[in-house]
């Protein structure tokens, strides 16, 4: 996949449900690939140093800072950005809806990253429930949620309503898995 003449690479991956292809250079970061090449501006650059989580995307359903991720490593993987989180008909997904209803959005710059991280927590929790490793049903506490979100800074909301949102969503997963 490397083009030795130009020093560029071709990567093929799945972006929000669509197979895509892009030409990148060695030092292209996933954040820039998404924002500049694919022109999806919902993934936010907050620090470019892995500290704030605004640039979080899901790679194969786990949350990663796209500002510290080499685009060259995305080949063959699945990426979900905030644009891919909404439902197919464009309506708000459960995570988004819950953030809005709980007043968890103020300036909104952290919101994309928060939403994806919460989504990942829901995946993680579903996996835990399904894996039946421990025998008894796993329980997620408020502290677990806080810990999960430590890498997402928010300067406006004080996190309280974001955490409330996440807990509500987890409880829903819990109820469904009954």
């Amino acid at each position: 996949m490397k083009n030795s003449d130009t020093g560029s690479f071709i990567v093929n991956f799945n972006l929000n449900g669509k197979d895509v292809k892009a030409e990148i250079s060695a030092s292209t970061l996933l954040l820039d690939l998404i924002r500049n090449t694919f022109n999806m501006k919902g993934t936010k650059p907050g620090c470019n140093e892995g500290e704030c989580g605004a640039c979080t995307v899901l790679i194969n359903d786990v949350p990663v800072n796209s500002c510290l991720y080499l685009a060259a490593n995305i080949n063959g993987k699945t990426v979900t950005t905030i644009e891919g989180l909404s439902c197919n008909d464009g309506s708000l997904s459960a995570v988004q809806d819950s953030l809005v209803k709980n007043g968890a959005v103020q300036c909104g710059f952290c919101t994309s990253g928060m939403a994806l991280c919460i989504k990942a927590l829901m995946f993680e929790y579903e996996n835990l429930v399904n894996s039946k490793l421990t025998g008894k049903k796993p329980k997620l506490t408020e502290n677990d949620v806080k810990k999960w979100l430590e890498g997402n800074l928010c300067r406006c909301t004080g996190y309280v309503n974001i955490i409330k949102s996440a807990l509500e969503l987890i409880n829903n997963v819990e109820r469904k898995s009954g």
Binding site: G53, T56, I59, P63, V64, N65, L68, Y69, E150, G151
Partner: peptide, 9 residues
């Protein structure tokens, strides 16, 4: 270590 996101990689 670090954050959820960093721990993945």
């Amino acid at each position: 270590l670090a954050s959820t996101q960093i721990r993945q990689v």
